[in-house]
């Protein structure tokens, strides 16, 4: 795990505006979002479909560029990074778990998890060893050489989480991480993410519709029509 960070805010969004589409169908999806995500916490983003949650996390992850406003990750203003620097910053500092998982079907579980390390230039053998260690950590020690098609959905989800964590990013963004999982598997995945979020140098931002996992949240931002309507801060006991 990374060393504790002195920066008190992991993600800071101020006046964030994002429009999607072009011409007459160009639509404003985010209407001046203000949001803070803190290290050592698990922040949930809740809201109905189409309210802009995915656009918001895409912008926070640096996958989309804000039209107005500012996004800072651990004190770095994304708008000030060049295109190439942004790619490197995102690759090193952000881990993303997608609802669709997006595992590489032709790679084994180990190879999938090793990809972020290989992208950063780590040697193959070392990347593989670290990937296997990470898979053991998420309870997949008997599935190291299996392909995604040979794994259950819950196992694939854990591979995706291992891939998001392998390069020790400071921000982990999860899009509906439990939507395809049964209750028990969902609980295991959330416990794993909570363990990561307890690292004071890292923050976890979760987008979900799944009411079963809300108790894991330290902070809940409610979204509606492209705006943050309310932020609930849960006590340590509530979030336990």
């Amino acid at each position: 795990m990374t060393a504790p960070d002195r920066n008190p805010i992991a993600v800071s969004c101020r006046g964030l505006v994002k429009q999607l589409g072009s011409g007459s169908i160009r639509t404003r999806v985010l209407h001046g979002i203000d949001l803070d995500v803190f290290p050592g916490e698990m922040t949930f983003l809740l809201g109905p479909s189409g309210c802009g949650k995915t656009t918001l996390i895409s912008t926070i992850a640096g996958l989309l560029v804000a039209d107005e406003g500012k996004v800072e990750l651990f004190g770095t203003n994304l708008a000030e990074l060049g295109r190439r620097s942004l790619v490197h910053f995102r690759g090193a500092g952000v881990g993303v778990v997608f609802q669709q998982l997006n595992l590489f079907p032709a790679l084994t579980a180990t190879e999938n998890v090793a990809v972020p390390l290989l992208v950063q230039g780590r040697a193959g053998a070392s990347a593989k060893a670290l990937a296997q260690a990470m898979l053991r950590e998420v309870g997949l020690e008997t599935h190291l050489t299996k392909y995604p098609s040979q794994l259950s959905i819950g196992e694939r989800q854990r591979v995706a989480i291992a891939r998001a964590l392998i390069h020790e990013p400071r921000l982990i963004i999860c899009d509906e991480p439990t939507s395809a999982l049964d209750g028990a598997s969902g609980q295991r995945v959330m416990e794993l993410l909570r363990k990561v979020a307890r690292d004071p140098g890292r923050a976890v931002l979760v987008v979900t519709h799944d009411a079963r996992i809300v108790p894991f949240a330290d902070r809940i931002a409610h979204m509606s029509d492209g705006r943050i309507t309310r932020i609930d801060v849960r006590t340590e006991r509530e979030a336990a």
Binding site: A61, R84, V87, A92, N102, F104, V115
Partner: peptide, 13 residues
């Protein structure tokens, strides 16, 4: 294309 996009997310220029 989703795999190429995924590589971009992971940090491939």
């Amino acid at each position: 294309i989703a795999q190429y996009a995924m590589l971009k997310v992971i940090g491939v220029t």
